[in-house]
Simulated assay, not measured.
Amino acid sequence: MLVALSLSLAFLLMAYLLGSIPTGYWAGRWLKGIDIREHGSGSTGATNVLRTLGKPAAVTVLAIDMAKGMLAVALVRAWFTWSGLDWIPLAWQPWLIVGAATGAVLGHSKSILLNFSGGKSVATSLGVLWVMNPWLALGTLGSFLVMLALTRIVSLSSITGAVAVNVLVLLLHQPLPYFLFSLGAGSYVIVRHQSNIQRLRQGTEPKLGQKLPTPAESQ
């Protein structure tokens, strides 16, 4: 039991550290010598990178942020599949997968390398869903893309995806740990978008490719 507990904690720490890799922040430093948290929305995510650094940087950051989440969960699943060892009880395994997914999501938004700041966890959440259940990921991505096509507002599309994943996890009859993850992660993504929700209500939320209005312009 002590070995199982130690391995579980190691997986959770590994997932958090993977999520903490500050891709958007490093892109700002390397490409323009700036702290991206001092520009645009202050997020290190791909949307703010797009506004601040341009499309190539945004696509790269998006891909790496998704990969962080994918790798965090894939490493746990690979251990179960290929280790051939029964050090972690079978009943723990779905919970450990969800724990790794949660660690990666929290790491992205509360990176230990950025004094516990970061992005809004949308891309990393999608990454963990790809490994947990590709149908969940496809459905969530589909709802995001439909809303984006209709409104061209990334934040609204992200919130739509956060709601849709909870519907999908029920329709696909996913296990309880996955349901709890979708509920928690979806709620967390929405909470991380509170400033966007305020701008949506005020009608000042920028569309895809637009910059945030300055304080004077938003009054």
Rank of each mutant, 00 (worst) to 15 (best):
W82R: 02
L141K: 01
L114I: 03
W79P: 02
S121V: 09
W87K: 09
V128Q: 10
W82V: 06
L129D: 03
S111N: 00
S117Q: 11
A101E: 07
K120E: 13
W79S: 00
A104M: 08
A67K: 12
F80N: 04
A123Q: 11
G69T: 14
A58P: 15
G139K: 02
M66E: 03
G99R: 08
V122H: 09
I112C: 12
G107N: 12
L113Q: 02
W82Q: 05
N133K: 09
M132K: 06
H108G: 04
V73I: 14
T102I: 14
L106Y: 06
S125W: 08
W87T: 12
G142T: 13
T81M: 11
L145H: 04
V73S: 08
L85T: 06
K120I: 08
I112E: 05
S121W: 08
V128E: 09
L138C: 05
A91E: 10
A74S: 06
V61Y: 00
K120N: 11
L62Q: 13
D65C: 00
D86V: 09
S143R: 00
L138A: 10
V76H: 02
L129H: 04
F144A: 08
V131L: 05
A58K: 12
L136M: 11
P134Y: 15
G84R: 01
V131T: 07
V131A: 05
G69S: 14
V122Q: 07
G127K: 14
A123E: 11
A100N: 01
L75Y: 09
I88Q: 03
P89L: 11
N115Q: 14
G119I: 12
G107Y: 14
A58D: 14
L85A: 09
I88N: 02
L129F: 10
W82P: 07
L138H: 03
I64G: 09
L145P: 04
L106E: 05
F80H: 01
I112A: 09
V76A: 07
G107P: 14
I64Q: 06
A123H: 13
T60V: 15
K110G: 00
L129G: 04
A104E: 09
M70A: 02
A58I: 04
G127W: 15
A101V: 09
T60E: 12
G139A: 07
V122I: 15
V131K: 07
L90F: 02
A74W: 13
N133A: 08
K110W: 09
R77K: 15
G119L: 13
L129N: 02
A101I: 10
K68A: 06
P89A: 15
V61M: 00
S111L: 03
P134S: 13
V105L: 06
A104L: 05
T124D: 06
A74M: 10
N133W: 02
G84I: 06
L114Y: 07
L62T: 11
P89E: 11
L114P: 04
G84N: 03
G107H: 12
G127V: 11
L90I: 00
G142P: 03
A72Y: 01
A137E: 01
W130V: 15
G127P: 07
W130M: 12
A78E: 07
S111E: 01
W130P: 03
A67R: 12
L62S: 14
V61I: 00
A58H: 13
